[in-house]
């Protein structure tokens, strides 16, 4: 029995502790050898949350993720397109996901996913330079999601939120503490990042989740732009 998770376009079953489900936009097709299953006429795609920081955040009980039907999402650090494909399921046919990554090797795989899904587009660019892709994404998006594992990931996130996030939109940051500083305790880094997010004009932290045990030393920050 599929049950909706809060008000999100995400579903779960009681017995799957590491799985979430989204309604498949491309029925019959699976992209990463994930399980497809039917429930009352709709097809669902299984979502292994230990491979996805957004999924882990939802499983850990995030109160809000800000991704609604019809949203335009800027996804930074899209990689092969695993999580983006689920975001694309969540925003549905009227929404759109702009998937950005700067490694040609993974964009190669990403292109194949985007070709099959009509609400996704690949962008090969550096998230650290938001101006460089201003012609490739809309001027304002509803959600910015970032998962880049760079040292200055917070800086990159704020820059992109300032440039592209609309007022009232959500910014989601998956933070890898070990990329910021291996010598510090992850907790300290989470605290510091949270303070800096709050200090940034226009940003409020709505929720924050440590992703353990799905990801070690990672946290998901959910922010709203005022």
């Amino acid at each position: 029995m599929m049950q909706q998770v809060k008000k999100f376009n995400v579903y779960e079953r009681e017995r799957d502790r590491r799985l979430l489900f989204t309604k498949n936009l491309t029925p019959g097709k699976s992209f990463f050898a994930e399980m497809l299953l039917k429930d009352r006429g709709a097809e669902y795609r299984a979502w292994d949350v230990s491979r996805s920081k957004l999924g882990a955040g939802i499983k850990k009980g995030a109160s809000q993720i800000g991704i609604k039907e019809g949203d335009a999402v800027l996804y930074l650090g899209a990689s092969h397109g695993f999580t983006p494909s689920y975001v694309s399921d969540m925003v549905g046919r009227d929404g759109f996901v702009f998937c950005l990554d700067f490694a040609p090797r993974v964009v190669r795989d990403l292109v194949f996913v985007c070709e099959e899904r009509e609400n996704m587009a690949p962008i090969l660019a550096d998230a650290n330079q938001p101006e460089s892709y201003k012609e490739l994404v809309p001027a304002e998006v509803d959600v910015v999601f970032q998962d880049v594992a760079q040292k200055n990931q917070l800086g990159i996130f704020l820059k992109n939120c300032d440039s592209y996030l609309k007022t009232g939109g959500f910014g989601l940051l998956a933070l890898k503490a070990r990329s910021v500083d291996v010598t510090k305790k992850p907790r300290e880094i989470f605290e510091r990042v949270r303070k800096e997010l709050e200090k940034h004009p226009g940003m409020t932290v709505v929720d924050y989740r440590d992703l353990y045990p799905f990801e070690k030393d990672h946290a998901l920050f959910i922010c709203k732009k005022k």
Binding site: A72, V111, C114, A121, P138
Partner: peptide, 16 residues
């Protein structure tokens, strides 16, 4: 966004 999508697909392929 369909024209933007087309443009992005072409560009990404070229860059790869």
């Amino acid at each position: 966004y369909s024209s933007l999508r087309k443009k992005n697909l072409l560009l990404a392929k070229r860059l790869v």
